[in-house]
Structure formats: structure tokens, C-alpha cells
Design a protein around this nucleic acid. Structure first.
Length: 585
RNA sequence: GGAGUGGUAGUUCAGUUGGUUAGAACGCCUGCCUGUCACGCAGGAGGUCGUGGGUUCGAGCCCCAUCCAUUCCGCCA
């Protein structure tokens, strides 16, 4: 070792010992006859000092000239500071420098390597190795490591085994767009990178492995967002001979274990809600349950009062914002602008102020008497001082719009505290989803999801396909979907029927998933599983909105790696070898 | 594919109605300073205003195109 100690461990107890430390120069402070430098490594910061009259003149000169991020080896004696710094663990001591060795020099970094950096995202990604030197980013990566460890520990203890599945697999038309890889040895043919190891883990169940897990990279070639990367990591799990109840209990256990181990936070039992209720009360299949503000449907109380907008609406629904009756006209106008934005697309907002004196002030006073408004307020459980916000329109759309407004109000009222955690199981998702555009049904989860046994009969009636519920479940934390899964189909006839509904001809079904259906004919056990988005889970545990800072080497919004500059063109010789031609658009 | 926002010093940003030599902070360089720790003080260097075209006597500012970044919608079984 080049060092005897790291930069975070020296204390008063080390006084008068000779030590050697290595690290990066954080900054120097030149006070004339006194020169200080902070030496940093991942363990902490230690101050080194040269004093005129005590230290050798050449040491003073060397110290004075140290630039930021120079890598140094310092030999010296630990001494007590005459002026201590209570803000850092090593603040009681400093090292009186006897020898400085420059291990490597550094250019001036393009942004400040400090907790509060001045660097923008693009620059930080281009110089990722500098960004990773910063405490907040390093801590996120360390948190990820702890999450990984705690996950493995929990699942290992339950007898799950980690089995790797291939990365070069086959492209399938269902689901997200695949990343593809041309095959040189099979010209004109392509591998695809897995969107998830779905079929492989089912095959492992057929093989009798019973409990499988993997912390595994998945790839989806879709447009990105702040919380989406083209390659991301899942905690992928599958179990045999289980019911949905077993899965929910096991993986609720995993999440609670993670909170307890990594956050020292005892997560209460995870409540459950059906998909239908989630949509009805929150307008979302991933409600943020850190706060209530449930939807209240108001059709009976608002219809028949000649307010045309409501008369024509399929659904009239509102939320009650506690203590917001004092909102000014301007603030309500801002909310109206918010819901009218093209991304949300509501036509208008009706409000009712429940004034402290018991009267009501609303934007629809012309149409509703104060008794009418009182009835609405009562139904919405409003107290004096509350503000009712009501939207109307086509059911599905208006629920989505009100859901956005609810989240916005949650933000405004400070109800979405990053240090508070509300987990939720959303159950009984629809099996199939109709696409108006393509005039056909799509699997809401994926084509291997089993219908609820009691709904299986509906498969025979095309008109009822949209009503079939699946044994499918999502885990939601703080309004973010962190994981989802289902009980799988394990019998060939049912799988064939499903693929048929999804528009596969028997030939296509066989070509795409023949191996799976054949496996089902060799004694496939009942099985099911779940996958958690590991990056998202880490970002929630870290209290961040973006997953990028929890990935050592993330890609930007366009799927580019700014550091290595990928993707990039390849040589003509490589293209020739793969028999590929590039056609310019 | 669509909508919004942004691009000015190494970095983060300001820049008035289109008008003299484009500013600030941090960083960097030089000097001073005996206990700093976001040290302080004095001075200095540093700019193709993303790119291309246009309007104008005159463009960082207005118009058109384009590139890049970023947020959202679509998309993400």
C-alpha cells in the first residue's frame, strides 16, 4: 500500500504518529506564512499544513503550487489543530507535511468537484469520472450497491437462486421496440437484446428450478424520459407452485427488507387496491398514496341544473383541497392554465370555495344554489376553509386530467415529502387493452399473463375480452410503478388461445413462441413472478427524481453516452462483413 | 411523430425598444496576508453570443432554416 491511512480516519488519537496518505487535492488555502491543503479520497478529507519556520521552504513552495485534483502522496506527522473544524470528522487534526510526492498532475476540471457543483448535466456526463468523485453521486452509487446486496441476501435466504439468461436472443413483435444485433455467422439475421428475461425464467420454472432471481440488464428501444434509460436493470424473479398471494407476501417482504436494511425505515404492511378502484379514486394505475385527496364523483348532485357543460359530461368528478379556500383568483387561474396545457388537455376548471363563514363561492353560482353547493361539499367531505376542484368530460380522460391536478395540488401543498414512503399493491389489472388505432387487443401486461380463473370463461366471448381481469399486480411507491408481475399461463391450449386473441396466426405463434408452448407440454408447473425496476427503486430510496445519478454511466435523453460518444458509425469493412448497407434518409 | 423551454467567458447565468468597448458570480493566473477550512484583499487573462441564411444604416436581441440539450405528450407488453 502506498498509504498508511485513508483521508477519513485520522483522529486526535493519532497525534504525533507519522502517517502517509494519498488522495486528490480538493483545494489549497494560502495564508502567506501558513499554507493549507485539503486532501480528498472516498473516505473523507484531511487537512495538510505547512508552517513557515517549521516546515522546509521547499515543502511550502510545493504545497503552494498544488492545483485542484492533483494526486499526491503526503508523508507527515499528525498534529492537533490550534483552530478546529467541527464540521468534518477529521477536523481536530491536520498533517504537518514532511514530504510531498506528486503521483499525477491534473488539468483544471471543467466543473467544480464539490457537493454543490456548477456543472450542467451534459458536462457531468461527458466527464463522468469527475462527477463520480463528488460525494452525492458516489453515495448514490454506494446506495445502489447496498440495495443490490440486501436484495441478494433476502432472496438467497428464501432459496432463490441466481441464474444468468442470454443477452443475445430473438426479436418479438409484441411489446417495446427491440434493440437488434446483426449476426455475422448467419448473414441477414439478427439477434435482439432482451426487453426482459421473461420467457427464459418461465422455461427455468418448467425445468424445475422453482425459485429464480436475477439482477439483470434489460433493453428497450423507446423514447426516453428523465426516469427511463435504454438499458436499465431489473430485479427479476419467478416462483413455481404458488398463488398470487404467495408472490405478494414474498415480495412485500423484499421491499420491507430493503427499507429496513438500507433506509432503517420500517415500512408498514403494504395496502392493496384493485385497478378499478385506483382508476376511480385516483385516476391512475399508480396512485401516490402519501396523501388522500380522493376523487368524489358528483354526477347525481350536478346533473339537471341546466349547466350545459355538466349536462353534456359523461363524468363530473372533483377533489377537495384542504384549507385552500383562501386561494386567490390568480392562483385558481394558474390551476386552470395548468389543466388546460396541451399535455393535460382539460377544457376548464370549476371551483367551489367553502368559506370560513359557511357560505360558498363558486364559478358556477349562476346554476347552483347554496343548498346545492352544500350537498356537494358534504359529499366531498369538505370543511369550511376547503377548496373543491371539479372537472368534467369523458370518463377516462377526465380521470387522467384530475389525477394530474391532484398531483399538482399535492406538490403545492407539500404533501409529496421525499422522506415519506407509501407503498401500494395495485391488483386485478385488465388482461387485455383495446387499441382503437390498430383495431385489436393488446396484452396489458404481456402475452403470458393468466386470466383470473373466474374470468377465463369470458375468453369465449369476443365482446367481453375487455372485461377480463388478470392475475396481474403492480407495486407502487410514492406514485411510481416500481415493479409488476403476474401469474403465468402454463398450459398450451390457453397460451395458444391468448396468442390468437393478440392476432398471432397459429404459424406465427409457433414461430415466435413454439419453444415455450412445447415446454408447456412437458409438465410445466403453475408459476408466476415479478420484476422490479432496480434503478427506480434506488432513486426512490435516494430521494431523487432522476434515475441517472444512480447509474454509474448513464445515457442522455437521446440515448447517447456522452463520455464514450456512442452510438457511433462503424467501418465499411464491418458493415461488409455483416452484409449491411446503410441507406441515408 | 408532436408541443414547450434553452444554447452568451472554463462553468452557472444576466444582457433594457435593435444602437458606444457584451457583464456578474464562481473557477483560473499573479501578488499580498501567521490558523484558514466557501479564507480574505488587490490586480489580471479569458467571448466565432450553437451553426447557416435573411431583414436593417446597425443584430446577442427580429425573421427563416438547421443542429444540440432538456421537459412533457405519443411510445415504453
Amino acid at each position: 500500500m502506498l498509504r498508511t491511512h485513508n483521508c477519513g480516519e485520522l483522529r486526535l488519537t493519532h497525534i504525533n504518529t507519522s502517517v502517509t496518505i494519498c488522495g486528490w487535492v480538493q483545494r489549497t488555502r494560502d495564508i502567506g506564512h501558513l499554507i493549507f491543503a485539503d486532501i480528498r479520497d472516498k473516505y473523507g478529507i484531511t487537512q495538510i499544513t505547512a508552517i513557515e519556520g517549521t516546515s522546509k521552504p521547499e515543502i511550502q513552495e510545493q504545497l503552494r503550487k498544488l492545483g485542484r485534483e492533483t494526486v499526491v502522496k503526503i508523508i507527515g506527522k499528525v498534529s492537533e489543530r490550534s483552530s478546529k473544524n467541527p464540521n468534518i470528522p477529521t477536523g481536530d487534526i491536520e498533517i504537518l507535511v514532511e514530504e510531498i510526492e506528486i503521483l499525477n498532475t491534473s488539468k483544471v476540471p471543467p466543473f467544480l468537484i464539490e457537493d454543490e457543483t456548477d456543472g450542467g448535466d451534459e458536462l457531468r456526463m461527458e466527464y463522468r469520472y469527475l462527477d463520480l468523485r463528488r460525494n452525492p453521486v458516489r453515495k448514490n452509487i454506494e446506495l445502489r450497491h447496498q440495495m443490490n446486496r440486501a436484495t441478494r441476501q433476502f432472496l438467497d435466504d428464501l432459496g432463490f437462486i441466481d441464474i444468468e439468461t442470454p443477452v443475445l436472443i430473438k426479436s418479438t413483435p409484441e411489446g417495446a421496440r427491440d434493440f437488434v444485433v446483426p449476426s455475422r455467422m448467419n448473414q441477414g439475421e439478427f439477434y435482439a437484446l432482451p426487453q426482459s428475461p421473461q420467457t427464459f425464467k418461465q422455461i427455468l420454472m418448467v425445468a424445475g428450478f422453482d425459485r429464480y432471481y436475477q439482477i439483470v440488464k434489460c433493453f428497450r428501444d423507446e423514447d426516453l424520459r428523465a426516469d427511463r434509460q435504454p438499458e436499465f436493470t431489473q430485479i427479476d424473479c419467478e416462483m413455481s407452485f404458488i398463488t398470487q398471494e404467495d408472490i405478494l407476501n414474498t415480495f412485500e417482504g423484499l421491499i420491507r427488507h430493503l427499507f429496513s436494511q438500507v433506509k432503517k425505515y420500517e415500512l408498514p404492511e403494504v395496502p392493496r387496491m384493485t385497478y378499478d378502484d385506483a382508476m376511480r379514486f385516483y385516476g391512475s394505475d399508480k396512485p401516490d398514496t402519501r396523501f388522500e385527496m380522493k376523487f368524489v364523483e358528483l354526477n347525481e348532485l350536478t346533473k339537471g341544473k341546466s349547466f350545459l357543460v355538466f349536462e353534456e359530461a359523461e363524468l363530473i368528478v372533483g377533489i377537495c383541497a384542504t384549507n385552500c379556500a383562501s386561494y386567490t383568483r390568480k392562483q385558481i387561474d394558474e390551476l386552470t392554465d395548468f389543466i388546460k396545457r396541451p399535455q393535460i388537455g382539460a377544457k376548464g376548471l370549476v371551483y367551489v370555495r367553502c368559506e370560513l363563514d359557511g357560505t360558498f363561492k363558486s364559478s358556477v353560482d349562476k346554476f347552483y344554489s347554496s343548498e346545492d353547493l352544500q350537498k356537494i361539499a358534504t359529499k366531498m367531505n369538505a370543511k369550511a376553509g376547503d377548496l373543491l376542484l371539479i372537472l368534467s368530460g369523458e370518463s377516462h380522460k377526465v380521470r387522467k386530467q384530475l389525477s394530474e391536478l391532484r398531483l399538482e395540488m399535492g406538490n403545492k401543498l407539500g404533501l409529496r415529502d421525499k422522506n415519506k414512503f407509501a407503498a401500494l399493491w395495485v391488483l386485478d389489472f385488465p388482461l387485455l387493452e383495446y387499441s382503437e388505432e390498430d383495431n385489436r387487443f393488446y396484452a396489458m401486461h404481456h402475452p403470458f399473463t393468466a386470466p383470473k380463473p373466474e374470468d377465463e370463461i369470458l375468453l369465449q366471448d369476443e365482446k367481453r375480452w375487455g372485461d377480463i381481469r388478470a392475475n396481474a399486480y403492480d407495486m407502487v411507491i410514492n406514485g411510481t410503478e416500481v415493479g409488476g408481475g403476474s401469474i403465468r399461463i402454463y398450459q398450451r391450449p390457453l397460451q395458444e388461445k391468448m396468442l390468437g386473441i393478440l392476432g398471432f396466426s397459429p404459424e406465427e405463434a409457433k414461430a415466435q413462441f413454439g419453444f415455450l408452448m412445447e415446454a408447456f407440454e412437458f409438465g410445466a408447473p403453475p408459476h408466476g413472478g415479478i420484476a422490479f425496476g432496480f434503478d427506480r427503486l434506488c432513486s426512490i430510496f435516494g430521494g431523487a427524481d432522476s434515475i441517472r445519478d444512480f447509474i454509474a454511466f448513464p445515457k442522455n435523453n437521446s440515448g447517447r453516452d456522452m463520455m464514450i460518444k456512442s452510438p457511433s458509425p462503424i467501418a465499411q469493412a464491418q458493415l461488409d462483413e455483416l452484409s449491411l448497407n446503410i441507406t441515408k434518409k
